[in-house]
Write a protein that binds this DNA or RNA. Structure first.
Lengths: 224, 224, 224, 224
DNA sequence: TATGAATGAGCCTTCATTCAT
DNA sequence: TATGAATGAAGGCTCATTCAT
């Protein structure tokens, strides 16, 4: 009994300083994110962010040197989420796999809402644009590698340039979320996935892959 | 006497008033465009635009109610250029046709340089975003119509959703210019066109279309 | 009659723009001076200066890039007045001459009131300190030259260092105004002049000089 | 046992509380002085002073109500050092005596470095100016008294106003340090002392005084 | 007592917009 | 109509001082 009381007593007012500071920092980050999304980066002032977080203006400057720095902290955590996902072709129905990847990506993006900021930032902040481009190029390379292997196995179209295919794949994946909304259609990830697969594989190869998978699954079932 | 008077009257404001005003307006528009592109919308001041156009600050406000209005006038003329082009499938090799459309689009975009502003504006100006979305939807509808006709003629893939195909086509076309640069490759419009065509047509249909064209050309030649 | 009317009509609203601007600039300068003197340089804000001059904050920045720049403009006109005066020994009673120099200097200083600012500025603004030191050294040199000539004529003390004498003379002249007030005495320039002269000349030489002058005056009287 | 306890008790807060507090206060004073000298009063922040003293910001305000109060405490200890020294004419060569007084004064001033702050403070802080003026007047009175005695003994010039002489003496003494540097000369206290003495005493009186001293010394030697 | 995070008034500066000329 | 000086709201940031722990 006394133990529990101690814990109760001890826990409440003794949130360690560091933790409280971290809390406040997070509050500011969150406020920044919300306001940036709502009003755009340029139109959000440090004062507003502070007010929205329920702290004084000066407090903002204790945790961040700058509006820009807050933004960068925000992006640091999120830059990877903004990247189109890297598919694994190997052992599953490519269409289903892509569809779920796309959906997950879409979900992530919607959760942070930050993607609406990206364009503004890319236009304004060269440094940030460079960082982002590097990240994108890395993913590009990895996807291209995967496609090359599929190509060597004879799974892909023979007459399409793999670089271009990779880029198309990334572009479609990246814009899947916001674009379908813009066109007034409910996002149907399966259909987007089918289009992307069509860019990569001839229909018959997809069928084969799907068949393989079914067999695998059957085998798995049998084993079970 | 009357002659002289006429001359006096006629010579001094030789250029008709309206025309002179139009000239000034155009000068301001041009200055605005250049500065917006160079320094971004927010970081360009009305004073600067006026100075760059060689007029006084106040004059700016005779021709435009607002910095924003100048921007809108600028975009009005250019919004269509920003849209991905609408292809005509009928009577030509689709791949070549698309390739040249893409190249032309790219060229237009680069010429105006305005596309770097779009993101900033979209984030800031909801109204503008709405206008842009409407324009895009219009194009979407027209492209979809064209694809539907091709579908009815049995030219397209049977198993792909036309809405999604349309969207993919637009997305790839829209991002062709800046994205390929980002990935460090020289833009090869032909390859992008091939990818887009693959999304729409089965390879054998494309061959047929290309053959038809050749025949048409041959026929045309023969007629001549 | 009509002429006069024309003038009246023409004159009032046609204060040339430049002149009006100059007027405003002067108003700001004056406000700056008053406030600097009253509250000290650091404690005067640009906003206050503007308000005191009856203009908006922004207007201040049309005429001066900075609070410091206003100050410098202020000093530019006045730096020479701050310097201790350079005496001419030649042909007059040195004590009277010095006394009137001191009085004139004091008057000038009091008129501008700026001298109370100098120390603050010297401490804060290295650049300004350099300028001032240069001006002072120039005067020093000229005074020293004059004393050297007097020395060569055997008019001065033989056993005092002329550099030191020059410096003493400058120091006493410079501080005559504000120091006597500080000590609670009415400034008696004649007495200060006598002290300064005593530093330079033995009493008997001063008598001779005064006698010479009297003779000159007498001669002049006779001529008249 | 009691020994150990004593030790334990004694060792930890070994330094009595008051003394520790005094220590901290002194540390803050010293930090304040250093930073004020280095960066100027206005440009030194309370936080900096605290940090430099190795204590928290809040601690600063336990020992001083104010940044200004710290400054005043600082000056309280030093105000006398800033005053020109009060000479003793009686029993020694006045020139040597003054020379060494001047040198000592100069040294003191340089040691504290505070004199660079005075101007800023005088301009800003009326109260402080009053305090300083009072201190100065006190010294003035004492010096004047000394001179009056000398006057009664017939040692001084008969034709100079003692008030003015006193003021001159103080002024020259006060500015001896920084002014000679400004004029580009190495400070020669002996020469300044000679000038000051010349303001007070006719040369022959000085000789007598110096002679007396020699006699006194001789006598003293003889006694020994 | 000591701490240092928090406060918020206040400074400097910019710029969209107005308006007297 | 054209001009450009004037306006003043608003943003970014600092720092003396307070106060909960």
């Amino acid at each position: 009994m006394s133990d529990r009381e101690d814990q109760l007593v001890g826990e409440f007012p003794l949130i360690p300083k560091q933790e409280r500071a971290q809390l406040k920092r997070d509050l500011l980050l969150k406020s920044g994110q919300e306001l940036f999304i709502t009003k755009g980066y340029e139109h959000t002032t440090a004062k507003e962010i502070a007010a929205h977080a329920g702290v004084a203006t000066g407090t903002f400057y204790r945790y961040f040197s700058d509006k820009r720095q807050l933004l960068m902290s925000l992006l640091e955590n999120q830059i990877e989420m903004l990247m189109p996902p890297e598919p694994k072709w190997s052992d599953s129905d490519p269409e289903s796999m892509l569809a779920s990847l796309l959906e997950a990506h879409d979900k992530r993006i919607k959760e942070m809402g930050m993607q609406r900021l990206l364009p503004e930032l890319l236009a304004k902040d060269t440094e940030f644009a460079v960082v982002l481009a590097a990240a994108k190029r890395k993913i590009f390379t990895r996807i291209l590698l995967g496609l090359t292997k599929a190509y060597e196995k004879g799974l892909t179209w023979k007459d399409l340039d793999l670089n271009t295919v990779t880029w198309s794949l990334m572009t479609l994946a990246e814009h899947a979320p916001d674009k379908m909304n813009q066109c007034g259609n409910v996002t149907d990830y399966r259909e987007v996935a089918k289009v992307i697969c069509r860019i990569i594989f001839p229909p018959e190869e997809i069928k084969k892959l799907q068949l393989n998978e079914t067999e695998n699954e059957t085998e798995a079932d049998e084993v079970e």
